[in-house]
Design a protein around this nucleic acid. Structure first.
Lengths: 254, 254
DNA sequence: ATCTAAATCTCGTCG
DNA sequence: CGACGAGGTTTAGAT
């Protein structure tokens, strides 16, 4: 077979027979393409939890990395899915005689943990196979990491005289975002959040401060500072209850 | 217009002109259908954070509820997205003279928070419009809620003589999963997790126990029990450090 | 609309 | 492989 210009990048079947759909899906998976199917199906999942979904029209996407996604017409999250690294198989189950209906079964399995997703199509309205190229990486700004860099560049943003000594400093309770000391030489633990925080972030900071106080084995109290754009009321109360502090800072915008 | 049997459920164009793609996408969105496009595009996002993605072949899905998802050939998560409730627009930008290239721009915006996603196609390899029906709900078992029901049905699973008194009991630090008392009449706070837990779950439990001890204003200590299939080493250490307990229980399997 | 916590969270990173 | 924490988390429920 010769492909003069570029290889086939897209192949679509409308209202295919189940056998034609099976063949196209199987060859798409074998070619490491991105395969989609839209049609009436039911879905069973068993693994970390277990779920069942009765028949309806859904959009199914199989990626060459072993991901499978089942989308309804609502919501950002797939109604069922399987993560990258799974094995896909597609199989046609013939109805017995003329009475039972045939079905197309798309199955995805993995181990560690043992998980299985089974999509059973009674009708396939459309199958597509897409072969593309994508070499690029997403560039993202506004993360917690950006906020950390901002503080390390200009420690006075936190408070005058603050000196960062380490990032990701290990404690028995986990790694501290920024560890440093204030102008009086007191140890400071900083927990960073890129957005408004609730009680969980306060607990996290408290855990680190506790651990560090035990670890330093000194009576000199360790200061704990939560750095985020803002806090909820309850989080603010929890901060005071435990002698922790808050400084309002956002990740850089650009 | 008459549709004798059933209305058009799927409409697909392979390698359409940008104008034909625009027309099909616009009418699909207007018809409240699920619309997909595959082709070479770049993607810009600005909102809670900001991101940029150079040109590559990707799969874009617009749902009638205002969701938009941009998928590459890898990963379970879309590389870019917009949540339900957004406004979609599709627009053709003509190149100037014959020198500049035309482009198809798919844009999704929302407020609270202000967010914008822009997908700029230089080539569309396939556009599909799907109209289906899906009335069913997912049935899921193995959740934290299932674990709670299991304990409420058979409190002795936790320990002999335990009596549940309330679920979602309010404290200044948040709502406790199960509140009850042991055979000696001591107050018990239970935090449930459907899977193996780490330090965060311990902190959460500690926060509730702390708050309840203050709230009850008594010196009688409140017992805190973490109920989960298992704990990590560090979490186990944190539990002992704070006088908290652990009971191994899983959500029911069926 | 905001708060709070669960989730088959997913994803990267590090030991 | 597990552990740990970030995430434009998303989603559901309560206030």
């Amino acid at each position: 077979m010769t492909r003069s210009e570029d290889e086939t990048r897209v192949d679509t079947l409308e209202r295919p027979s189940l056998e034609a759909a099976r063949e196209t899906i199987a060859s798409g998976i074998a070619r490491e393409a991105l395969v989609t199917a839209f049609g009436r199906c039911r879905v069973e999942y068993d693994g970390r939890a277990a779920s069942s979904l009765a028949a309806g029209d859904r959009h199914v996407m199989c990626k060459p990395d072993g991901t499978i996604l089942v989308h309804t017409d609502e919501g950002q999250k797939p109604v069922n899915w399987q993560p990258p690294g799974c094995e896909h198989t597609v199989e046609l189950v013939e109805g017995e005689a003329d009475t039972t209906e045939s079905a197309l079964i798309l199955e995805s399995t993995r181990s560690t943990p043992e998980e299985r997703l089974r999509v059973t199509f009674e009708t396939v309205l459309c199958v597509s196979v897409f072969a593309g190229t994508d070499d690029t990486d997403l560039s993202l700004v506004g993360t917690e990491e950006d906020l950390r860099e901002r503080i390390l560049e200009t420690p006075d943003l936190l408070e005058s005289g603050f000196t960062p000594l380490a990032t990701e400093r290990a404690t028995p309770a986990g790694a501290v975002d920024i560890y440093g000391e204030d102008s009086a030489g007191r140890a400071v633990v900083i927990e960073l959040k890129r957005r408004r925080v609730g009680p969980d972030a306060v607990s996290q900071l408290r855990r680190y401060v506790d651990a560090l106080e035990r670890d330093l084995h000194a009576d000199a109290a360790v200061r704990g500072i939560l750095v985020a754009p803002s806090v909820t009321d309850r989080a603010s109360r929890l901060l005071s209850d435990h002698g922790l502090e808050f400084v309002s800072l956002e990740p850089p915008a650009e």
